[in-house]
């Protein structure tokens, strides 16, 4: 039984408390990832790649070899690394902008080629680091700095369904799931299976995490939680979309 109150062993203690805003979901996602790293005992063969945006704040988060790359380019850096040295475990960690906007071609083609890496996209419905602009995942009607009157699907499109898109194009052996910081037990199961899928070398692994951004949402604790649990989960359904044996947890 994991002690959720303790810091994961793989965390870099010197950089704690971490740099994310109070109430941000990154800390929860990275806590779970830390626990998975510990449980699978992979600290010595893991490379953690972080994108630009809030994810870059994790550049010194773990006692794990880490590379902070450019916006949207974490997938190709991890792909190149994995191709050169398949013994490494490579995790590309990014936000929804890096995954679904500026780096979408890399995500799509990594999935097409069934690259043996794990891509994790933290979906918080906006660009956090740059101050709360509309993201590919901003919900219809949601107000952001660049959709001040609410996102209009007519002119800006509908929120990107990342895992659904990846699941539609992924090859056999792929693992695709969406979890949420609102259900950490499920999220941890998904995270662990996603990492295990890379260890097994089955195929591309992809995990989206529904996360929170109270700073840019301008929400208090209650409203923040309500947005993640009620608003986001209505549009973004959690569950497994692809597994190597095609048995899925809804």
């Amino acid at each position: 039984m994991t002690d959720h109150l303790a810091m994961p062993k793989s965390w870099h203690v010197e950089t704690k408390p971490h740099k994310f805003c109070p109430g941000c979901g990154h800390g929860i996602a990275l806590k779970i990832l830390g626990e998975v790293i510990d449980e699978l005992n992979i600290q010595d063969r893991l490379v953690f790649g972080v994108d630009i945006g809030c994810s870059l704040l994790a550049w010194d988060f773990f006692d794990v070899d880490t590379v902070q790359t450019h916006h949207g380019r974490t997938n190709p850096v991890m792909v190149g690394m994995k191709r050169a040295n398949p013994d490494l475990l490579c995790i590309a960690y990014m936000g929804d902008g890096g995954g679904y906007a500026i780096g979408s071609q890399h995500l799509v083609n990594s999935a097409f080629r069934n690259e043996r890496i794990l891509a994790i996209v933290i979906n918080n419905c906006n660009y956090g680091m740059t101050g709360g602009q509309m993201a590919p995942t901003t919900l219809p009607g949601q107000k952001t700095e660049t959709s001040p009157y609410g996102r209009d699907a007519e002119t800006t499109g509908s929120p990107t369904l990342g895992p659904e898109m990846v699941a539609a194009i992924a090859s056999p052996g792929a693992y695709v799931a969406r979890g949420s910081i609102a259900n950490i037990k499920q999220l941890k199961r998904f995270m662990k299976k996603a990492v295990e899928n890379q260890i097994a070398g089955n195929g591309f692994s992809f995990l989206e995490v529904l996360s929170s951004c109270p700073t840019n949402w301008r929400t208090n604790a209650k409203q923040t939680w309500a947005f993640v649990e009620d608003e986001m989960s209505k549009y973004f359904k959690t569950g497994e979309l692809r597994t190597p044996d095609e048995k899925k947890e809804a």
Binding site: V67, P76, V77, A84, N85, H106, V108, N109
Partner: peptide, 26 residues
Amino acid sequence: RKFLQTEDELSAGFTTIGGIMAGSRA
């Protein structure tokens, strides 16, 4: 030796960087 045909030059550049960081003469 190995080869990867990427989706564009951005990816070609960043995958090359990844390969180098893994210790390859890429």
